[in-house]
């Protein structure tokens, strides 16, 4: 439990850092680690982000988090929702032996979120409810290749 809390706090701190970076007039310099490690993933996410109805994404690895959200005012809420989804998956996989995550779709009243993992990075893509999440999942799967248990 304490581990979960720590993760959330870390996540919020990381996002706050990125927000500050984004507040500068010029485009924020991407964290070097993500730049090399997740470059193709970020390019893929940028393409997905440009699709109609896709409202943003959060990409997080062990050290950093980057986001591109239309509604950045509620960024922390979205980040916590994504974090909780990964936590829920961990609980469920312990209970029901789901195996490595392919993806998780969370449909809310006002939006939907598709989560997946790519290598050690966690990805959450937010979209309007009318967007075909399967299409997004397929686009993400060009990156995501879960290791079979």
């Amino acid at each position: 439990m304490s581990k979960t809390k720590k993760t959330r706090e870390e996540l919020i701190n990381q996002i706050a850092t990125v927000i500050l970076e984004n507040a500068t007039p010029d485009a924020p310099p991407a964290p070097p680690e993500l730049d090399t490690k997740n470059q193709s993933l970020r390019e893929n996410l940028a393409q997905i982000r440009s699709l109609p109805g896709v409202t943003g994404y959060i990409l997080k690895d062990q050290a950093t988090a980057v986001f591109d959200m239309e509604d950045s005012a509620n960024l922390v809420d979205y980040a916590i929702l994504a974090s909780e989804t990964f936590d829920a998956y961990a609980t469920l996989t312990a209970a029901f032996e789901l195996g490595a995550m392919e993806n998780t779709l969370v449909e809310c009243k006002e939006a939907q979120m598709l989560c997946t993992t790519v290598d050690e990075a966690s990805v959450a893509v937010f979209m309007e409810k009318n967007v075909d999440s399967k299409e997004i999942a397929i686009k993400l799967q060009t990156q995501a290749k879960p290791v079979k248990n």
Partner: peptide, 8 residues
């Protein structure tokens, strides 16, 4: 919510 794993 739909949680898809490789096994279940």
């Amino acid at each position: 919510a739909t949680f898809l794993g490789v096994n279940s």
